[in-house]
Design a binder for these strands. Sequence first.
DNA 1: GCCAGGATGTTCT
DNA 2: GAACATCCTGGCA
Length: 203
Amino acid sequence: MGRPLSLPDLSRPVLEVAPRLLGAHLAAGGCTVRLTEVEAYAGQDDPGSHAFRGRTPRTQVMFGPAGHAYVYFTYGMHWCMNVVTGVDGEASAVLLRAGEVVEGLDVAQARRPGVRERDLCRGPARLCRTLGISGVHDGVDLLAAGSPVRLLPGAAVDPAGVRTGPRVGVAGDGAVAPWRFWSDGEPTVSPYRAAVRRVRRST
DNA sequence: GCCAGGATGTTCT
DNA sequence: GAACATCCTGGCA
């Protein structure tokens, strides 16, 4: 702590930007969230990225300039939000996995009745739901003053408290880059759940 | 408390 | 047709 409160240059490489987004604030839907867990997706270099197989209508925002929101719909009912990083055309982004509500808690709890405060933004889909983020926010400029979703400077995080981990499920030939970043000791960071192949109900 | 399984629609092969 | 960067509910310890 104690470092000046400022946002990282989002046009830098995603693995550099991701840890520096911890502690930043995300304001939307009358609430402000302090980011506590993020995950980097490096586009062409990450088999787990939506953009790995190339540009599609769905992922075209990831290929655009940094500072925009890439919001996608998954599992039939959940929205997840990324912050596009890197230079134009690189398709890298940072998935916002978890956060803590620091402003507008009453609004958040009204939107999510019965949910404990620490669970409001514990998980990428819950974070979006609590903030009211959906597909209409796909591609918005997070740095524009008039945007419905804004990324703002927050509380600087002690680099020593930033923990990293390789993503399980992504096969790496040799060393695997630490894709996930989270603030140590944050109750809003959920334990990692190994990817399980879902068995679909037979038709 | 933890674990297993179902839900639900868009995207891509 | 199958996968999917997930969440919620119910059952059991």
